[in-house]
Design a protein around this nucleic acid. Structure first.
Lengths: 166, 166
DNA sequence: ACCATAACCGACTCGTCGGGTAGGATTTAA
DNA sequence: TTAAATCCTACCCGACGAGTCGGTTATGGT
């Protein structure tokens, strides 16, 4: 009923790269430290992101990763899909093109299972939510919330913080 | 990234009860046979549905299960939630009221993780899809698709079938 | 009274997979 | 040539999904 940490960590990784965008390649170790995530595990995740052409890598010393495109042009459904694979609420919805059957009991009887109607709606609900969210939004969000937690920037005492609630 | 078979089987169970509604209690064995699902496993699932007051049981001979309410008054988010527990896209979103922390890295630093924005949208996308679907719809869908697969009802040859596509 | 039928309940198994770790090979700037 | 980095494969481990099994209780029919 939930996504795994692959999606969570991978997205945080992308956000971190989004924050550092433009300053050249960022080594994974930096990201791992910033987000307090295991480096060796992030390596596996970033490999998926690279294969999906969401990040580019430069090897060797002073190497690292950076976004393949500006954050505003990356929608989160691509990211999540790259990390988790086909994004579907139920087994039946996986690899339709892969020769496997759809519903366990759709193979013999022909009546397509009624649950399909429901899962289809759920799936499109999830996907639309992800498509409608760009990496840039998340980067912006993380910037503003970081600022809220340590307001170094001098601000008139008592001045209201705009756009506080999500 | 997906729901487990608990939701799938449990929903199919509910649909089956919805089809038989009004004819008194239906024994689980009947449902198991109709849907070709393991009886012993269905017992566990129906227990969850009973605790959630979605079905009522009558014990003893000629006993069985039936819907606690008409199918039109049962929205699928209740059903799925009863079967799978808190419906959330990510660990952080579980048992907020249960003393556990939210995000792994939200406990120390205070900046709420930026991914939260994304998961919130996904969650509400899923929930809205489920809330907007009633059991009655699924029952109706299963009836009509069953009819399509074995069209016993005499129909004028070549007559078009209305509303074929979902 | 007795039996078949059913719901109920808890414990147990078995395989898969998420969530990593370990260790190395390869590339490249300084 | 060396240190910093990506890259790659293999392995491990606990949890959980997906059941199974055996037994107990309740109830209608005969």
């Amino acid at each position: 009923m939930i996504f795994s940490t692959k999606a969570e960590y991978g997205v945080r990784l992308m956000v971190e790269l989004g924050r550092q965008h433009g300053v050249g390649p960022v080594p994974l170790a930096t990201v791992a430290e910033a987000e307090r995530l295991p480096l060796a595990y992030l390596e596996q995740l970033v490999a998926k992101l690279r294969k999906a052409d969401l990040v580019t890598s430069t090897r060797g010393a002073h190497g690292g990763y950076q976004l393949a495109r500006p954050a505003a042009e990356i929608s989160m459904d691509e990211v999540v899909q790259a990390l988790e694979g086909q994004i579907a609420p139920m087994e039946c919805f996986m690899d339709q093109r892969d020769g496997k059957v759809l519903c366990s009991h759709e193979e013999d009887g022909d009546r397509s299972c009624s649950t399909k109607l429901m899962w289809t709606r759920v799936q499109s609900g999830m996907i639309r939510a992800l498509q409608g969210t760009t990496l840039a939004e998340l980067v912006e969000f993380s910037r503003s919330s970081a600022e809220r937690s340590k307001p170094r920037v001098r601000r008139r005492a008592g001045a209201p913080l705009a756009g506080q609630t999500a």
